[in-house]
Computed example of a mutant assay.
Amino acid sequence: MSTTEDPSWFKSSYSGGEGDNCVEVAVQLEAVHVRDSKDTAIRPFTVSPGAWSAFTAYASNSRT
Rank of each mutant, 00 (worst) to 15 (best):
M1D: 10
S2L: 12
T3R: 04
T3S: 15
T3N: 13
T4R: 11
T4I: 06
T4H: 12
T4S: 15
E5G: 07
E5V: 14
E5T: 15
D6V: 08
D6I: 07
D6P: 15
D6K: 14
D6F: 04
P7M: 06
S8K: 15
K11H: 04
K11L: 12
S12Y: 07
S12H: 04
S13G: 11
Y14D: 00
Y14H: 14
S15G: 04
G16W: 04
G17F: 08
G17P: 05
G17W: 00
E18F: 11
E18G: 14
E18V: 04
E18T: 09
G19C: 05
G19H: 06
G19Q: 05
D20Q: 12
C22F: 09
V23R: 06
E24K: 00
V25E: 02
V25L: 07
V25G: 01
V25H: 04
A26N: 07
A26D: 01
A26G: 15
V27A: 06
V27W: 00
V27L: 06
Q28C: 13
Q28K: 13
Q28H: 06
Q28F: 05
Q28E: 12
L29Q: 12
L29K: 09
L29G: 04
E30D: 15
E30W: 08
E30Y: 07
E30Q: 14
E30C: 04
A31M: 06
A31G: 09
A31N: 05
V32F: 06
V32H: 01
H33D: 02
V34Y: 06
V34N: 04
R35C: 05
R35Y: 10
S37K: 04
K38Q: 14
K38W: 03
K38L: 10
D39V: 12
D39F: 06
T40I: 08
T40V: 12
T40M: 08
A41P: 00
A41V: 13
I42Y: 01
I42D: 10
I42T: 13
R43M: 09
R43S: 14
R43W: 06
R43T: 15
F45E: 00
S48C: 03
S48Y: 05
S48I: 01
P49G: 02
A51G: 06
A51T: 14
S53Y: 01
S53C: 05
S53F: 02
A54T: 07
A54Q: 10
A54R: 11
T56Q: 03
T56L: 09
A57S: 13
Y58I: 03
Y58E: 01
A59D: 09
A59C: 03
S60K: 13
S60L: 05
N61F: 02
N61Q: 11
S62K: 05
S62N: 10
S62P: 02
R63G: 03
T64R: 15
T64L: 10
T64H: 13
T64Y: 05
T64I: 02
